[in-house]
Design a protein around this nucleic acid. Structure first.
Lengths: 252, 252
DNA sequence: ACCATTGTATGGTCCGACCATAGCGGGGAC
DNA sequence: GTCCCCGCTATGGTCGGACCATACAATGGT
């Protein structure tokens, strides 16, 4: 009985079922008001839960649920105690929340690996192209350090994975587009752990592959130093494609 | 359930895990366990709050805060009553949550408009290229309908804005990459309201600009029909650039 | 001047009660 | 026999209060 409605409104009613007035949502609205109006800036403290509850005329539980929802979205940060890091404050790093959500998004929606790969290529090509012309000396310097550390013999798989992640993230940030960088970070970061599991599953086959990745990184690094945007783009895409072509995709 | 860690056993210095003993997070972990293990699929109902609290040996408030956080991330959906749509269930559309978060993200981080424009161009070029070869007949048919409705004289600015949004979203979905499409939707959707405000601020200047947008849409549509990926890409980028070149960017 | 104790403000957790909503089912009117 | 009304029940939503845990601040003794 799909589409059957007892209260037939016969046509143009467009009878919007009055949005539920869940109290905690009203609290969320008030908080967002303060943020968008500029009254609350990043790092500012909100009133204590008990006080705000009193001010808004609602229960503390309602305030807590609102805070919890905002915290889950990375908007707020809650801490106990009385110091400067205590109380509920406007969070400084929403990127982390984006990462968390995107990770869940990927897990729940079960995106095809091919889609994720294409998205990575698209994002990182964009970043690499811009990084080739906009990368600052300290960006390049840090990239060089990362490459050297990845060459180090006492660099195990976990460390290599972290360095590899930072290498790509650094390039994304050097690209100068904060939004694109955040999306890149979110995706790369969301795959850090599954990637590590894939590393471990490789056994001794890991070494030659790691060597290949290092070569790719070196070439990309050189292209960035030369300001060769076209090469940086192409090398990045080839690098990512090769990365998944080794059959690791099955591990994801 | 005794899966509880007692006080530090003053021996090995492995005492890393501390401060993250928040009960509601443990509840979140349990729920995510059930989801990733497959025991809970999209649409499934979770136990009633009171029951789950009893089962996990925590208070109902802890369960509620966990649910609230997961709901804020778009993982769960909570509804009252006794029917099939009642109770707490695993949500089906995390895209909406992504949109919400990205909107807040943009507001809080105050991304430069240029960054958002570049991100749009990157995403929609990708979608357009693939849509040119993968768009299905019903996709094209719907796009045609949207174009016709945008031509209609009784199409006001709000309606035009909605149709324009759907036009771009449709192309993104026709591209076949769910992840890219979701990111496109999130960004386009997050700018729907500010864009509408910009429309209204234009006054009578709106009509010639709308006409230009319609022409752009027609050309893109034709490129998609022809399967001309290159043209679709270029037209999309030119369209978006022109879109913001009219000085609307200042309104954002 | 230094350090331990106490104080205080904050979030974290729990309990128990009641309200609001929405489907379900029994019982009466026809 | 059929149909509608009304109360039942399960569910999330809200509330108030109590107590715990934490971390800094103020105090006071040495």
């Amino acid at each position: 009985m799909t589409g059957f409605e007892s209260e037939a409104d016969a046509g143009d009613a467009d009878w919007r079922p009055v949005a539920r007035t869940r109290t905690y949502e009203l609290v969320i609205d008030r908080v967002e008001e303060q943020i968008v109006s500029g009254a609350l800036k990043v790092g500012d403290r909100l009133p204590a839960e008990r006080d705000l509850a009193k001010m808004l005329g609602v229960s503390r539980a309602a305030v807590r649920e609102a805070f919890r929802a905002l915290e889950a979205q990375g908007v707020l940060r809650m801490g106990v105690g009385t110091g400067p890091d205590s109380g509920t404050t406007v969070a400084a790093l929403p990127s982390q929340a984006l990462t968390r959500l995107l990770r869940l998004h990927v897990a729940l929606a079960n995106f095809p690996v091919a889609d994720v790969v294409r998205a990575r290529i698209m994002l990182e090509r964009e970043s690499a192209r811009h990084a080739a012309t906009r990368a600052r000396p300290d960006d390049l310097h840090r990239l060089g350090e990362l490459l050297d550390e990845m060459d180090s013999p006492d660099c195990d798989r976990a460390r290599f994975n972290d360095l590899d992640t930072e290498f790509h993230v650094r390039i994304a940030e050097a690209g100068g587009n904060r939004l694109v960088a955040d999306m890149t970070i979110a995706i790369r970061e969301s795959m850090r752990r599954p990637l590590l599991a894939a590393f471990d599953a490789l056994g001794d086959d890991w070494h030659p592959i790691a060597e290949e990745l290092r070569r790719d990184h070196r070439k990309t690094y050189q292209a960035l130093r030369d300001g060769d945007a076209k090469a940086a783009e192409e090398l990045t895409e080839a690098h990512i494609r090769a990365f998944y072509a080794h059959g690791w995709a099955r591990e994801l």
